[in-house]
Structures are given as structure tokens and as C-alpha cells.
């Protein structure tokens, strides 16, 4: 065990894991966090806490993670390299682990021009793969990034990374994932999957490379709310591919039935993903739709969650 986190235990036991996602508020409204915690608690093994996602300023991932711990829910602290250099990164990791955070997801982060502070200067001192490698070194060798100096204490983290099979060059994506695994990723979560055929092809290569044996691969799913969102995502969000057939299903149902259809599609996808070799869990991103998590996971027969 590298971290003793619940997520690590569930995955290591060979259970099909479920992680959720919680976006902190655009301010310090604690009630908003607690409301989301209430909707997720008991339904998932751990919850990703986003780090100023889409470069919009939000309550810090570390602080929100600590609130989750206090409320009895396990966080996966996300950390992007957009806003921190190696000094801040390591200092934040020490602080986070001292507060009891046991899972960390290493990301590069959306470019700042997308967010609400587009005039900001970015950092990108290191990239996401270098971050994974650095955290692995902190944990396993107890050395600071890029030096032989010893750290005081122990950094027990279950190290995660993200991957996207749906960004070009497609043929390279399994190999880039391999780099993340080599750097030290223990679990990886994908971008939302809608194109099953493409994902299966990706997984075939990933398994041929032996990645499923070296790390836990979790498949990302996001329920579609309505036809408008589906069409928008299909057209405008880079790195997301939604096949026409799904766009059609969402568009063909009457408006008031769209949410139901979206959930139905999501449940079908989860069932299909469970059958794919190498997929060890799902990462359910029901963003601003946390109230549907319980329903989706009940229908997908993933509840109750294992106690390990």
C-alpha cells in the first residue's frame, strides 16, 4: 500500500471502483460544498476535487479536500501545474498530506485564457508528467524534485493522472499514457467517453502494452442533460467525441424526457465499460448534477460501495 487510501484499497482488492467529482464554489460558500458532499457521500469510493477547473477561480482544492475529510468522504486532490512552480507544488503537497489527503491527481490544467482571469501569467515550470515523476520521487525516494536532498516526513500518496483517448494524434495516446504510468501513475482517469468503439480500440493497445497491469485504469463518464448540451459538447469541446447516434438519441426524445434518456445512456455506457478488459472502475463526472449520482449508480448496480 502506498497511501492506505480507500480508493487504493478498493482498487487493489480488485473491486470495480467508482470516483465522483466535486467542483468547489466560486467563493468560500461552505454550504455549497456541504450540499454536494451530502449528495455524493456513500455513493462513491473517493471524490476528485478540481483545482480551479477551466481556469475559473474557485475555493482551493486542498482546503475543499480537507472539508471532505472532516465530513467523512475521501478526496482525490487535483493539482495543476498552471498556477504553481515546483516550490509551491511541493509545499502544497506537504501541507495536503499533513492534513490527511491520500490521493492526488496530477494535471497540466486548462490554459488560463479560458477562465475568468484571462490576463493572468501562467507558470508551467514543469509539466504533468514531470509532476507525476516528482511526486513519485517524494513518496518513494523521499527526495525533493530534481535534487538529492531528503525531505522530512513521509508523503503517502496514491498518484493519479488523467488521459484522453479522444485527442489527436489518436495512435499516440496509449503511448502517452504509458509515459504517465512509467513516470509513476498508480491510477488514471479518462476524459468523458461517449465513443465506445474508439475507447475499446484504445484499451486494446493499452492492454497490449501491459498498462492495465501496472496501473488502475478508470473510465470517465458524464451523463448528458439535454440535447442542447450534447450538441454543444459534440461541436465545441476539444478532446470530446460524441457519436452521431448519441446526439440523435438525445435529440429524438421529448424535452422533458431528455434527462432520463441521458441517464439511461450513461448507465448503458457504464455496463459496457465494465466488460472491457483493463477497466478497473469509472470516474463519474456529474458536474452540477450531483443529485443524479445515486440514481445512476443504483441503476448501474454499483451500490452499495464496498467497505474495505
Amino acid at each position: 500500500m502506498r497511501s492506505e487510501s480507500n480508493l487504493e484499497k478498493v482498487l487493489e482488492k480488485g473491486e470495480f471502483a467508482v470516483t465522483g467529482e466535486l467542483g468547489p464554489p466560486k467563493g468560500n460558500d461552505l454550504e455549497l460544498v456541504k450540499k454536494k458532499i451530502g449528495l455524493l457521500k456513500g455513493n462513491v469510493d473517493a471524490v476528485n476535487i478540481t483545482d480551479n477547473q477551466t481556469a475559473v477561480v474557485r475555493m482551493s482544492s486542498i482546503a475543499t479536500s480537507k472539508i471532505l475529510i472532516d465530513e467523512g468522504l475521501e478526496p482525490v486532490m487535483q493539482m495543476v501545474v498552471r498556477d504553481r512552480n515546483r516550490i509551491a507544488i511541493q509545499s502544497d503537497i506537504f501541507g495536503a498530506t499533513a492534513l490527511g489527503i491520500k490521493n492526488m491527481l496530477c494535471l497540466s490544467g486548462d490554459h488560463q485564457t479560458f477562465g475568468n482571469q484571462p490576463d493572468a501569467k501562467n507558470v508551467f515550470d514543469i509539466d504533468s508528467i514531470q509532476l507525476i515523476d516528482g511526486v513519485r520521487r517524494l513518496r518513494d525516494e523521499k527526495k525533493f524534485f530534481g535534487t538529492d536532498e531528503d525531505i522530512e516526513g513521509e508523503v503517502k500518496l496514491f498518484i493519479g493522472a488523467a488521459f484522453n483517448p479522444f485527442a489527436e494524434p489518436y495512435e499516440y495516446r496509449p503511448y502517452r499514457l504509458k509515459k504517465k504510468v512509467q513516470a509513476g501513475a498508480n491510477f488514471v482517469q479518462s476524459q468523458c467517453i461517449y465513443d465506445m468503439k474508439m475507447f475499446k480500440e484504445f484499451m486494446k493497445v493499452a492492454c497490449d502494452l501491459g498498462l492495465d497491469e501496472k496501473c488502475h485504469i478508470m473510465a470517465g463518464v458524464t451523463p448528458l442533460k439535454n440535447a442542447g448540451m450534447t450538441k454543444y459538447m459534440a461541436k465545441n469541446v476539444p478532446g470530446i467525441i460524441i457519436p452521431d447516434e448519441i446526439v440523435k438519441r438525445m435529440s429524438d426524445v421529448p424535452k422533458e424526457k431528455a434527462a432520463e434518456e441521458g441517464i439511461k445512456i450513461c448507465v448503458e455506457q457504464i455496463q459496457e465499460l465494465r466488460e472491457i478488459k483493463g477497466v478497473h472502475g469509472i470516474h463519474l463526472m456529474a458536474i452540477e448534477w450531483e443529485e443524479k449520482v445515486h440514481e445512476i449508480l443504483t441503476q448501474a448496480k454499483l451500490l452499495p460501495r464496498p467497505v474495505v
Binding site: 498552471r82 497540466s108 490544467g109 486548462d110 490554459h111 501562467n122 508551467f124 509539466d127 504533468s128 508528467i129 514531470q130 488523467a162 488521459f163 484522453n164 485527442a167 489527436e168 494524434p169 499516440y172 502517452r176 509515459k179 476524459q191 476539444p238 478532446g239
Partner: peptide, 14 residues
């Protein structure tokens, strides 16, 4: 745009 040394990131689009 992110000065990455181990790219490409997941945001490349066509």
C-alpha cells in the same frame, strides 16, 4: 501554449 516537455496535452483539436 503550456510549454510542455512531454506533450501533446489532451486539448489538441484536429
Amino acid at each position: 501554449s503550456k510549454g510542455l516537455f512531454n506533450g501533446p496535452c489532451g486539448g489538441t483539436d484536429k
